[in-house]
Simulated scan of single mutants.
Amino acid sequence: MKRDMRKTEREISKEEAKDILLKGEYGVLATISDEGYPYALPLSYVFADDIIYIHGAKEGHKLDNINFSSKVSFCVVGDTKVLSEKFSTNYESAIVFGKAMIIEGEEKTHALKHLIEKYSPDFMVSGLKYIENDQHRTTAFKIEIEKISGKARR
Score class of each variant (00 low, 15 high):
132 E>D: 15
114 H>F: 03
35 E>A: 13
11 E>L: 12
38 P>Y: 11
110 H>E: 14
72 V>L: 11
41 L>H: 03
45 Y>K: 06
143 I>E: 10
139 T>I: 06
151 K>W: 01
45 Y>P: 05
42 P>C: 14
62 K>C: 11
81 K>C: 03
105 G>Q: 07
49 D>K: 08
85 E>Y: 13
131 I>Q: 06
49 D>T: 12
37 Y>A: 14
57 A>K: 13
141 F>C: 01
30 A>L: 11
134 D>I: 05
84 S>I: 09
12 I>K: 00
126 S>C: 08
110 H>S: 05
108 K>F: 02
9 E>Y: 12
61 H>E: 13
116 I>F: 00
95 I>K: 00
112 L>R: 01
81 K>E: 15
111 A>F: 04
79 D>M: 10
111 A>Y: 05
125 V>G: 00
55 H>M: 03
104 E>F: 14
90 N>V: 06
32 I>Y: 10
89 T>C: 06
94 A>N: 10
57 A>N: 15
111 A>S: 06
105 G>T: 10
13 S>M: 12
153 R>W: 05
111 A>E: 04
28 V>G: 02
145 I>H: 08
124 M>S: 00
47 F>V: 11
128 L>Y: 15
22 L>F: 08
85 E>F: 14
82 V>H: 05
95 I>M: 13
133 N>L: 14
133 N>H: 11
135 Q>Y: 13
153 R>E: 09
61 H>C: 02
39 Y>E: 07
120 S>I: 04
153 R>A: 03
138 T>P: 00
141 F>T: 01
112 L>F: 10
49 D>A: 09
107 E>N: 04
116 I>H: 00
77 V>Q: 04
10 R>L: 10
81 K>N: 08
81 K>F: 07
3 R>N: 08
124 M>F: 00
11 E>W: 00
56 G>T: 03
76 V>R: 01
86 K>W: 04
56 G>D: 07
15 E>I: 14
134 D>N: 14
39 Y>C: 05
49 D>P: 06
119 Y>D: 09
109 T>D: 13
115 L>Y: 01
18 K>Q: 15
144 E>R: 12
52 I>Y: 02
56 G>L: 03
134 D>M: 12
72 V>P: 11
96 V>T: 13
74 F>H: 01
135 Q>N: 15
12 I>E: 07
63 L>M: 10
130 Y>G: 07
87 F>S: 07
146 E>K: 13
21 L>G: 04
95 I>T: 13
58 K>I: 12
141 F>I: 11
103 I>P: 02
10 R>T: 04
70 S>H: 14
76 V>C: 09
93 S>W: 10
48 A>D: 07
151 K>S: 01
58 K>P: 02
45 Y>Q: 08
134 D>K: 13
37 Y>Q: 12
60 G>R: 07
20 I>A: 08
129 K>W: 07
38 P>V: 15
133 N>F: 10
33 S>C: 06
12 I>M: 02
33 S>E: 12
